Simulated scan of single mutants.
Amino acid sequence: MPKAAPFEEHHERYDAWFGEHAFAYLSELLALRPFVPWQGRGLEIGVGTGRFAAPLGVGVGLDPAPAMLAHAAARGIEVVEGVAEHLPFADHSFDHALLVTTLCFLDAPDQALREARRVLTPDGRLVIGFVDRNSALGQLYAQRREQSLFYREATFRSAEEVEQLLLGSGFAIEAWGQTLAQAPDEMCEIDPLRPGHGQCPFVVVAASPACAPSEVSLAGWVRAPEERPGPGAGLVRRADRFTGPG
């Protein structure tokens, strides 16, 4: 698969990025944390090296690149080789599903989202993390796409386009969040999660296949990470283990 080839060939370089940009990585991780349920069976579609699934407690990961899956398996993930458009799982197999910077690489994102809806329980949740095309960083990535090893085949989308994809695939939007006010190379501290979208490039959206969206509260998560109560504070400490290679 052409889009998976750079990740297969350069899997170590990909995984090393998270250690080299620890503040950006932890900011994204903490932005996802309020949306991903602590309990239930979870699936990450496009799990990569498991950098998000492992600390977020998502037990199963799917990816088309075997070398990436080897990293994820080493992090304790149950790995399955496959593609998002044809998930090799039975209906209603998972309580929640996660896609992090995966949507931009899908050949048929609408089909992939319908597949995600199929494998989710009726009261399940889909969480998507993506780079907003309309953000300054998203535009920079798009402009330099041809020079990028990993983003050469990417199709970046705006928050509005992701929303339309979700609604067209039978999901109801629950909540939005965003982070990375600075470019990853410029960050010297963890950036807090902010509600909504439109100000920061890394956007998180939670959606439900149910008719009525369930409540997702960001209260207590829009402050600096060290001020966050409960699970967030613990995550900062535990996530330190995942900033290095493997």
Rank of each mutant, 00 (worst) to 15 (best):
F35W: 09
D107F: 07
A74F: 13
P229G: 09
L137K: 05
V131W: 12
E85A: 12
G234Y: 14
L149V: 02
L87Y: 09
L26T: 01
G82Q: 11
R157D: 04
V205T: 01
S169D: 06
P66Y: 05
E174C: 05
M68D: 00
P184Y: 14
A207T: 06
Q139Y: 09
D107N: 10
S93A: 14
M187Y: 00
P88L: 11
L103A: 13
L30R: 13
Y14K: 01
C200K: 06
V100L: 06
L99W: 14
Y25W: 12
R13K: 08
V204H: 14
S158A: 14
A72F: 02
A5H: 11
S208F: 13
R33S: 06
A70V: 00
D63P: 12
A183Q: 09
F35T: 00
W17S: 00
S214D: 00
V131M: 15
A4C: 07
F18P: 00
L165Q: 08
N134Q: 14
V204G: 10
P225S: 07
A90K: 15
D240P: 02
H11N: 13
P37N: 13
I45K: 08
V79F: 02
E226C: 04
R237M: 02
I77R: 12
G124M: 05
W38C: 11
P34S: 11
P109M: 09
V162D: 05
A54E: 01
G138P: 10
T102M: 00
V119T: 01
L113N: 10
A136I: 12
P2W: 07
V80G: 03
R241Y: 12
Q111G: 08
D240R: 09
D132K: 05
V216E: 04
S217I: 14
R157G: 02
P192Y: 13
Y25Q: 01
G220Q: 11
F171V: 10
A183H: 15
P192A: 04
A70S: 08
D240K: 12
P34A: 06
H11Q: 14
R125D: 05
G220W: 13
C211G: 09
E8A: 08
L113C: 09
V222T: 15
G50E: 12
A65I: 00
R223W: 05
G57M: 08
L99K: 13
S169L: 07
A212R: 15
A70E: 06
D123A: 15
H86D: 03
Y151V: 07
A72S: 02
I190S: 10
G129Q: 02
N134V: 03
A72K: 06
P2L: 04
G234M: 13
Q139K: 11
A233T: 12
A210W: 02
L32Y: 01
A108M: 14
G230W: 12
Q111E: 15
Y14V: 00
M68Q: 11
E153Q: 12
G76P: 06
N134P: 03
P245T: 11
W38A: 14
A181V: 09
L98V: 13
R238P: 05
A172K: 05
E9R: 05
I128C: 11
F23I: 00
R117Q: 14
H197M: 00
V203S: 07
